[in-house]
Amino acid sequence: MSPTLALLARELRLSLRSGGGAGLGLAFFLIVVLLVPFGVGPVPSLLAQIAPGTLWVAALLATLLSLDRLFQADFEDGTLDILTLSPMPLEGLVAIKAFAHWLTTGLPLIVAAPVLALTLNLPDPAFFWLVTSLAAGTPALNFLGAIGASLTVGIRRGGLLLSLLVLPLYIPTLIFGASAVSAAADGADPMPAFLLLAGITLFTLALTPFAAAAALRMHMR
């Protein structure tokens, strides 16, 4: 087994076993979306209008929830030091960990989103774009989260700080993701927003491993 696959398998095993918190984000996503109608009232037209934004914001918060475990456990028990000594560059390691994190937290959100969209009365043409935009956008959320997680890794009670650092980074992704879905819901062309969203994601995937790896090196120096 190649080192990349071995690391990926390890990450997945750890997060799927109890205590990994993979299901927690999904449950959080569910609760946030189900709380919205209680807050704004059960008017179908109103819910349909706010559905794209609500689903995107909820997905974003659900991703945020599990971020602090991304490097924390490995940092505390010394695994991260061992992994750093391996021939694999730290940047690659960060990318694999963030990708594994996306597989266990981002992917379930994409699967659950259409079901929850039904409860919010999302217009039919927007379902395809909801799934597509989440698929294109959630990797960026996990990779940007890796920056925040690497910056706050050694800090006690770093969870709140992590949110403060990461949430502003999510703004472009949120804007383009939710815009694509609402454009589709309004019968407009979702392509411009979607392409910009995909561009942001590719940009993020290419650059964040370097920033996060740099921050981790500073912690372990």
Partner: peptide, 23 residues
């Protein structure tokens, strides 16, 4: 060190947000 990394990343995303918000 870490705040410097944040300043770098923050600059990129502050500029990005400025134009994303326009859209």
């Amino acid at each position: 060190d870490l705040t410097s990394v944040l300043a770098m990343v923050g600059t990129v995303f502050a500029v990005l947000s400025r134009y994303a918000v326009n859209f």
